[in-house]
């Protein structure tokens, strides 16, 4: 299965991936409208210390701890892709506790959100990959 991988060697910590992600999952067709003067809720986040930086998002583990920890049955796995049914999520944060990577986070409305590889929005290829100026984020089979 194709997954998103990051390479800290090429990450510039420009944070563009976060903005593209938030825009892609906003459901709006205009980036300015989606992001201007609003709090940002990206599903990918750049971790940075000193000169080292890289983006972190869901790794779509083959044995996902988040799925096992979900008390509402909102997290499911299909063909390797792990998705959240936000209607079922009760916001208990169990998944946040379980995920060793910090790849899940609350959305604007309070229920959980996570990277779904842009498979559930209208962007096709993951936009963080498309938007990265230095190929520090790649989408490939490994």
């Amino acid at each position: 299965m194709k997954r998103i991988y990051v390479n800290e060697q090429w990450c510039l910590a420009c944070h563009l991936c976060e903005y593209y992600c938030a825009y892609a999952n906003s459901g709006l067709l205009d980036m300015v409208q989606a992001l201007k003067d609003k709090p940002l809720h990206p599903r990918i986040q750049v971790e940075q210390k000193g000169t080292v930086s890289f983006a972190v998002n869901c790794r779509h583990c083959s044995e996902p701890l988040c799925l096992k920890s979900c008390i509402a049955g909102a997290i499911s796995q299909k063909d390797g892709l792990i998705v959240i049914d936000q209607d079922k999520c009760v916001g208990c944060y169990s998944c946040i506790m379980a995920c060793p990577y910090g790849a899940l986070m609350p959305s604007e409305s309070g229920v959980m959100q996570k990277c779904e590889l842009c498979a559930t929005n209208s962007h096709g290829l993951p936009v963080c990959v498309q938007g990265c100026p230095n190929q520090a984020i790649v989408y490939e089979e490994r």
Binding site: L12, A13, C14, H15, L16, Y19, M31, V32, L35, K36, D37
Partner: peptide
């Protein structure tokens, strides 16, 4: 300014330090 979403990528990418974020005005 109508288009700027203050993502600050300009600030982060300019080695000449042209851009900066004004906390007072946002």
């Amino acid at each position: 300014q109508d288009r700027c979403i203050t993502c600050r990528v300009c600030e982060r990418q300019c080695a000449n330090e042209v851009h900066s974020f004004d906390e007072a005005t946002g």
